[in-house]
């Protein structure tokens, strides 16, 4: 799911720190944004905008940090509105709802672990490419 690869060039200490920060940013945003899933996307997007003129290594990792959140955002949004409809409308707690919440919990934990690992490795200047999201980033982010 996650592979480490040689980057086109060896990133400097400063670049590695900035790239790693993009994952830390998304990590903090996930925690802060859990009650309202859109917050983490906005926070990461703002960080991405701030670094879109940075070096290729920094831009690439900011982009990967951003796109890797899209699927989790969708899953969490459905979970969030489902919960709201249970609290405020006629919807009731069901086995389907509980299993959905557990499913998104598993996906969020996987995302959290992958993000922490990537933040640590990127800080060392190692290029970490995620399955699917890495290829998607390659498509979006050009050198």
């Amino acid at each position: 799911m996650i592979t480490t690869q040689e980057f086109q060039y060896l990133p400097s200490e400063h670049e590695a720190e900035k790239a790693s920060n993009s994952y830390l940013m998304s990590l903090l945003a996930i925690i802060a944004g859990l009650p309202l899933p859109i917050i983490n996307l906005i926070a990461t997007f703002v960080f991405y905008l701030g670094n879109r003129k940075g070096s290729y290594f920094v831009r690439w990792h900011c982009t990967q940090a951003l796109v890797s959140q899209l699927t989790v955002l969708l899953m969490n949004s459905v979970g969030f509105w489902w919960t709201i409809s249970i609290i405020f409308s006629d919807e009731v707690i069901s086995g389907r709802y509980i299993s959905y919440i557990l499913t998104i919990l598993i996906f969020n934990i996987i995302d959290l672990i992958a993000t922490i690992y990537t933040a640590i490795e990127t800080r060392k200047g190692i290029h970490v490419k995620w399955w699917f999201y890495g290829d998607l980033t390659n498509l979006i982010c050009k050198s």
Binding site: S94, L102, T103, F107, W131, F132
Partner: peptide, 26 residues
Amino acid sequence: KLLLQFLAILIIFYATWFALNSIDWM
């Protein structure tokens, strides 16, 4: 390749949900 990978994520997601749904959580 990207589309196939995305489809795989969707399948994994729904398969997990479906598998968990077979347990009587209530």
